[in-house]
């Protein structure tokens, strides 16, 4: 199998690339459970740092989860009907609207945050509340939900299905709930997981919008890197990993499912 030099070369490159990606990750994870990073693993392994991170930052973790779920609810309520409306009325105006919704993808989060601060910064109550960060997250994640749902809706003959339901006596809200939503479900699921993952990991925008009392998981991470000892920061990364990896796996599974429907 590895007789030819070309194959050997390929294998070496692949292994090198893997090492390049994995070693820092493993090292960081290891640092999170090492008693003293500067003395190495020989100093012993411990859960002390993880417990300490939990004590210091559990608020950030719950805030992030809460934000992600609230963001999901908002993108579902806004995004699914929006995707439906865009898919149902194709045309130049729809394409322009779709591009417009997608703008936050291209604009740096910092610029988006600045715009939000300029617009709403004067409303003290709003500015200080977690809903301010939520607005930023919804703006940033909405295009992912809309596009994911739209791609599934574009693959089914929505118009005829709805006409069928209408001829059977279904008014428009029943058609949406009975026909559109169930058939768009794979797209909605894929979009939902993307939204939650992105919201939990979002740093750029959140860093600009956060207050000392409202630190999300990534903002807390930056804070711990800047002000805590390295082991605590690493333990923090470990917790972050433990939360985000299952979400990423679920996202892959949901996207594969949605693509199966579309083919």
């Amino acid at each position: 199998m590895f007789k030819s030099p070309a194959k050997l070369f390929q294998l070496a490159i692949t292994l090198l690339a893997c090492a390049f990606l994995l070693i820092p990750t493993l090292q960081s994870a290891l640092a999170g459970v090492t008693v003293n990073y500067f003395r190495g693993v020989s100093s012993g392994l411990t859960f002390k740092w993880i417990i300490e991170v939990w004590a210091l930052y559990s608020g950030s973790i719950f805030l992030s989860i809460g934000l992600a779920l609230a963001c999901l609810v908002c993108t579902l309520i806004i995004g699914v009907p929006a995707a439906y409306a865009l898919a149902r009325n194709p045309g130049r105006l729809s394409r322009m609207l779709e591009e417009f919704i997608s703008l936050p993808l291209a604009i740096p989060g910092l610029a988006l945050a600045l715009a939000l601060l300029q617009l709403y910064g004067g409303w003290r109550e709003f500015r200080m509340s977690w809903t301010f960060i939520l607005v930023g997250h919804v703006l940033y994640t909405l295009p992912f939900m809309v596009r994911s749902v739209m791609s599934v809706l574009a693959a089914i003959d929505l118009k005829t299905l709805e006409e069928g339901a209408a001829s059977l006596g279904a008014p428009s809200h029943r058609r949406f709930l009975d026909i559109v939503v169930p058939n768009a479900l794979p797209g909605i699921l894929a979009g939902a997981l993307t939204v939650v993952t992105l919201s939990i990991g979002e740093f750029n925008l959140t860093w600009m919008l956060h207050t000392p009392f409202l630190k999300t998981l990534p903002v807390g991470l930056a804070d711990s890197y800047a002000s805590m000892r390295l082991e605590i920061a690493s333990a923090y990364t470990l917790i972050f990993f433990a939360m985000i990896v299952p979400l990423l796996l679920a996202m892959q599974w949901a996207t594969a499912r949605a693509q199966r429907i579309m083919s």
Binding site: I156, T160, L161, E163, G164, S167, L168, G169, A170, N183
Partner: peptide
């Protein structure tokens, strides 16, 4: 009268059966 209140049954060329 709108379609949903006409009490007409319709068979479509593509059948338009609900896959869900």
């Amino acid at each position: 009268i709108p379609v949903e209140k006409r009490k007409v049954g319709m068979v479509f060329q593509s059948y338009a059966l609900f896959p869900n």
